[in-house]
Write a protein that binds this DNA or RNA. Structure first.
Length: 425
RNA sequence: GGAGAGGUGGCCGAGUGGUCGAAGGCGCAAGACUGGAAAUCUUGUGUGCUCCUUGUGGGCACCGAGGGUUCGAAUCCCUCCCUCUCCGCCA
């Protein structure tokens, strides 16, 4: 969430941020009204409490001195009733205030393009060479069928649509890719690996901004009030929830492999074939906790770290700088990495690298002690490094051969224990 | 799942109804002492909210969380969460 002081002191800046997201600015005024009301109530209640404390103290003194204190007792009793009534009002106002605050998105960075949706994104650079074929390249579904590495019908039988099964070399390639990425992040890029819970509580989901907005997009275990994570960002960022970090320890760089669970409510019927959009997928994620002044430099480094995954595999991809209307709720700036899928002639998003500034840190209460000993919120960033299904699609489609085999990128061969996927039919 | 013990500041730990935001110790910081350091001594050392006459200012809240009793709760009662020990079950 945003700093209420910022909304109070520079409301136009926040309204402009909402307009740049093509959102209504009314929530800003709602927050300001609730804030003013809350502060007025707190001032009134505090005055009553101060009075009660004062009288209450005198009661103790009188009783000790053997004097009668019944008048004072009656006075504090009346004050207590007034305070209780005031406190109810405060509680209600604060709950409404907090709810309203949680629904205001981050303010887009001023330097990113203004645009309503993905049409406004800026094409920053293309990396690698566009693969060419002297035959008609297949899409990953056709390739997968030839290679026998997916089983969709039995995934439906076990769970439902959107829960594909990887088989044999497909499962092994997936595992090899995870290992390759984690090794890159930990050995070459200085990240610490973490294997977190895949199920978290409500406070964690609020901390990173999934709740309340994305409630319907997540799987919920009612009995325990637990949530299946939609991304490793949630457990890894919340690792430091309510913590105070030492400035000397920053930046902290963590990486984690986890499955990700997404209901994709509202996407029914979209991208239903293959593994492009599924309810459960694997991803390697990178998360950083940094000093505010460095967060935009750290974002550039994060993008580079994600890019290294793809360049290391020799894949062709592009980098987009998302416009104001396309960045996520919590982000101030975001780059997407998109892999080229020649079979379906489409760019596939495999990574989002975002700077959340202090937006998540405020929600999750992640602070650090500055060199001067003051407390301040850290800036958090995260980036996929990278999502597996679409990486798999791109490898299949970019590296396919005329005979239907797939010649694997060299970097992955030692992990896979072989150099190609062979057709079984 | 059952029984018991416990949750107090950065850490340890005292506090069983009133001047307790909380003794004492450790740690940390500054100063004194020293050629320098150690030791010693002195002083300081939580967070959040809020008000105004923005000040070495005032007020409120916080002793796991929430509720209750009371004029008044760290202290008494209830519920929940967590930790530890033992038992049961189990990968």
């Amino acid at each position: 969430m945003l700093d209420i002081k910022r909304i109070r002191e520079r409301p136009d800046e926040v309204r402009e941020g909402l307009r740049r997201r093509w959102m209504d600015t009314a929530p800003v005024d709602e927050v300001l009204a609730l804030d003013a009301r809350r502060r007025a109530l707190v001032t009134e209640a505090d005055a009553l409490k101060a009075k009660r404390n004062e009288v209450s103290k005198s009661i103790g003194a009188r009783i000790k001195a053997g004097e009668d204190a019944s008048a004072a007792k009656e006075e504090t009793r009346a004050l207590g009733d007034a305070i209780a009534a005031k406190d109810v009002e405060i509680r209600e106002t604060e709950a409404a205030f907090r709810e309203a605050m949680l629904r205001i998105p981050n303010v887009p960075n001023k330097d990113i393009a203004t645009g309503p949706d993905s049409s406004g994104n800026r094409d920053v650079r293309h990396v690698g060479t566009l693969p060419t074929f002297d035959f008609k390249p297949l899409d990953h579904i056709a390739l997968g069928e030839k290679l026998g590495i997916f089983d969709f019908p039995r995934g439906v039988k076990l769970t439902g649509t959107g829960f594909p099964i990887l088989l044999g070399p497909g499962a092994k390639l997936q595992r090899a890719l995870i290992q390759y990425m984690l090794d890159l992040h930990t050995r070459r890029q200085g990240y610490t690996e973490m294997l977190p819970p895949f199920v978290v509580n409500t406070a964690s989901m609020i901390g990173t901004g999934q709740l309340p907005k994305m409630r319907d997009d997540m799987y919920h275990c009612e009995v325990d009030d637990f949530w299946l994570i939609p991304t490793a960002e949630v457990p890894v960022t919340n690792y430091y929830r309510d913590d105070i970090l030492d400035a000397k320890a920053l930046p902290i760089k963590l990486t984690a492999y986890t499955p990700c669970f997404r209901r994709e409510a509202g996407s029914a019927g979209k991208d239903t074939r293959g593994i492009l959009r599924v309810h459960q997928f694997d991803k390697v994620e990178m998360v950083k906790f940094v000093e505010p002044a460095t967060s935009y430099d750290e974002l550039e480094k994060l993008v580079k770290d994600a890019e290294d995954v793809l360049t290391g595999l020799g894949l062709h991809f592009r980098v987009l700088e998302l416009c104001s209307g396309d960045i996520s709720f919590s982000a101030a700036k975001c780059y997407d990495l998109e892999l080229w899928a020649p079979g379906q002639k489409a760019w596939l998003e495999v990574s989002s690298c975002s700077n959340f500034e202090s937006f998540q840190a405020r929600r999750a209460n992640i602070r650090y002690r500055t060199a001067e000993g003051k407390l301040d919120f850290v800036h958090t960033l995260n980036g996929s490094g990278v999502a597996l299904p679409r990486l798999m699609i791109a490898i299949l489609e970019q590296c396919q051969q005329a005979d239907g085999s797939v010649l694997l990128p060299e970097a992955i061969r030692p992990y896979f224990g072989g150099d190609r996927l062979l057709p079984v039919r």
